Amino acid sequence: MDDHRAQVEELLADYRRSREQLVSVQRELAAVSGRASSPDGTVTAVVGGGGKLVALELSELAYRRHRPEQLAELIVRTVEAAGALAAEDTYRTLSAVLPAATDPAAVVAGTADLKPDEYEPQPAQQPARRRVDDDEDNEQRESWLDSELIDRRVR
């Protein structure tokens, strides 16, 4: 009986250590962020865990130097750069607790134990086209024309 109790105590101790490690990793993941600025310094973005944009700063010069479409593109590129830095931080945090051969990016993407054909998009199937008879097509045209005539008369 004492052997059994010792095994249970050992299992509980392992569980507690694993749980503490999980709490620590969760805290680190909650603190993940990436910060990037545009080359000209007019846009700064901060992206948190999960790729969520948490801050966006535009300098006064941003509106003067860039036309709206250029500024929009600059914002998107800057947010992407910040997101990439946050993702690297996430992968680094996870690498410390995952088995050596495990790809942290695949774990985050949810594809770690899947084969590419299980998660890559499949080509869309085209629905079978129904052949419309000439009479049916003419009826559709006439009803459309009739409604156009009615609309014109109402005005």
Rank of each mutant, 00 (worst) to 15 (best):
M1E: 08
M1A: 12
D2I: 13
D3V: 12
D3P: 07
H4A: 11
H4L: 04
R5W: 08
A6L: 15
Q7W: 12
V8P: 00
E10G: 04
L11P: 02
A13V: 05
D14S: 13
D14M: 12
S18F: 11
E20V: 00
Q21F: 10
L22E: 12
L22V: 12
V23Y: 08
S24E: 10
S24N: 08
V25P: 00
V25T: 14
L29V: 02
A30L: 09
R35G: 03
A36L: 03
S37Q: 06
P39I: 07
D40C: 05
G41D: 08
G41E: 11
T42Q: 03
V46K: 05
V46S: 05
V46Y: 00
V47M: 10
V47L: 14
G48Q: 01
V54K: 06
L56I: 06
E57A: 14
L58Y: 03
S59P: 02
E60F: 08
E60Q: 08
L61R: 07
R64K: 02
R65D: 13
R65F: 11
L71K: 02
A72V: 06
L74D: 06
V76D: 01
T78Y: 10
G83Y: 04
G83W: 01
G83P: 04
A84F: 01
A84L: 03
L85H: 05
L85Q: 13
A87T: 05
A87D: 00
E88G: 02
D89R: 03
R92S: 07
S95V: 00
S95T: 01
S95P: 00
S95H: 03
A96N: 05
V97W: 00
L98A: 00
L98R: 07
P99T: 06
A100Q: 07
A101H: 05
D103G: 07
P104I: 01
A105W: 00
A105M: 00
V108P: 01
G110L: 07
G110C: 11
G110Q: 12
T111R: 01
T111K: 05
A112S: 09
A112T: 09
D113Q: 11
D113K: 11
L114K: 15
K115L: 14
D117P: 01
E118H: 15
E118I: 10
E118A: 12
E118Y: 15
Y119H: 15
E120N: 12
A124W: 02
A124V: 05
A128R: 08
A128N: 07
R131T: 14
V132N: 03
E136W: 04
N138G: 11
N138R: 15
Q140V: 09
W144D: 15
L145S: 09
L145A: 14
D146W: 10
E148W: 11
I150E: 07
D151M: 08
R152S: 09
R155T: 11
R155K: 14
